[in-house]
Nucleic acid binder design. Structure first.
Lengths: 247, 247
DNA sequence: CGAAAACTTGACCCAACTCAACGAACGTGG
DNA sequence: CCACGTTCGTTGAGTTGGGTCAAGTTTTCG
């Protein structure tokens, strides 16, 4: 993965969210940056600390956002994958309010934070694309609050699986109906407000009912519509329609 | 409430989030708008529909954001009060992904959406203030996901009460230690992922333990630190420090 | 190959839910 | 300003989804 191709990916991502002209793209391709790798579980951002001097753009691998209670129980509030910008949520905030950790081995492009802020200001179309990206993730937070607050264990987990499938397909990472879920059952529990033990039972129940097939962490959907119904899943909140910008 | 004073309030709100110059303020004060009132439970935004031509700025009263499952159970994902901009979450999105309803009788200033988008583009400092406002609410969504996913009923409800107290004080609506919570116990349940019945029992338990005093919907905090401890509440996620902008 | 991490399963428990009834407060119209 | 219907709050009894604890088993990885 060369430096140039990282910025090309970034330009492609932002261009899919808002119409960009040649100058916008040129400004993106001129961003100061460097490549970086994280091990699984490594922290990219820590709650309570000021944001660092750089913003991470995921080239490969997965990351997750997480908060903890005083008793140490953890809630994962969203998952990020290749093509996601991790620091837009706090580009203009003074303190981080949550943690970001690598879920798998993670390859990122570190963009200079000041340069990104300047870019948003000087190239409004790029700034809007960044805004849209951040707003879509805010929508995901809302859906997760609904998921965790009002669905039962089976629907919660099925919903997570559906979101993963939909986003990975949209990001070009996975093809239809089959992918590897890069999470332990304990992490699935942290994302759904359940315990690892109950996640295990629920996944087995979903498989026993023929909704999914499991092999290690590889998941296959036997019947997308049945899983979708069990999950109460609608992709509306992912705003995939933003990919076809209005004039 | 005159029209002019509504825009002055808006300028004050945005000015508290980012440093604005005289031209920024002038541009805010020139925004096309009109005053509007909503009855309790009236819808301002409906999931699945494109955002309207206007953006609402709350002058008085309370609103809430809400999503529902297919079975009809509802999750309130945040509460808004005087001084809040309601439509920033979808200023650049094509479809609304959640509902917004009036919680009480609500007075708003309706700002022209296109004018607000143009303002964000032409006056970057104003655009950044709007971004910051939207990002702070995204932080609230994350905290609510943690609240609903990982705290027990007592902490969840205490947390909601603490957030309300803190935000109302910051917004200048309530003074220390006492305010009216403009929600039914059923609505508190929808915000915390509990049933109205259990909210009732938990509120009474909090009162019985001397943490709070209740009179109708008026709430008093007997001992802020004890409630805060029971709630596992830290105001970090509200980003009140943004009010003192950096240079 | 061996240790650590992840997954699986069973037995038991409890926080929160459901259902149901009733009392209190509110607002609305006559 | 009172009557009354409706919404909201309160309480009890019984149920249950998911948690806890504990002991294997399998997989991963150095």
């Amino acid at each position: 993965m060369s430096d140039a191709s990282a910025l090309i990916k970034l330009a492609g991502k932002l261009g899919s969210l808002n119409r960009l002209d040649a100058e916008d793209r040129a400004a993106i391709l001129a961003l100061p940056h460097r490549m970086r790798t994280y091990d699984p579980a490594a922290y990219l951002v820590r709650e309570g600390q000021p944001p660092g001097k750089h913003c991470s753009f995921i080239i490969a691998g997965f990351a997750f956002r997480q908060k903890q209670t005083a008793q140490g129980t953890r809630q994962i509030v969203s998952i990020n994958m290749a093509g996601d910008l991790l620091d837009l949520q706090q580009l203009f905030l003074k303190i981080s309010d949550h943690n970001i950790q690598a879920l798998t081995r993670l390859e990122t492009a570190e963009l200079d934070r000041a340069a990104l802020r300047a870019l948003a200001r000087e190239r409004p179309a790029v700034g809007e694309a960044m805004w849209i990206d951040a707003m879509i993730e805010a929508s995901i937070f809302r859906e997760w609050a609904l998921n965790v607050g009002r669905r039962d264990a089976r629907a919660r987990i099925a919903h997570l699986l559906c979101e993963f499938a939909t986003r990975m397909k949209a990001a070009g990472i996975a093809t239809d109906g089959r992918y590897e879920l890069p999470m332990t059952q304990e992490q699935i529990g942290d994302a759904t407000g359940l315990t690892g033990v109950h996640v295990n039972r629920t996944l087995r129940s979903l498989a026993a009912d023929g909704l999914i097939h499991r092999d290690r962490r590889f998941l296959g959907f036997a019947d997308w519509d049945r899983v979708r119904a069990a999950a109460d899943f609608s992709a509306l909140y992912l705003h995939l329609d933003q990919s076809a910008p209005e004039g």
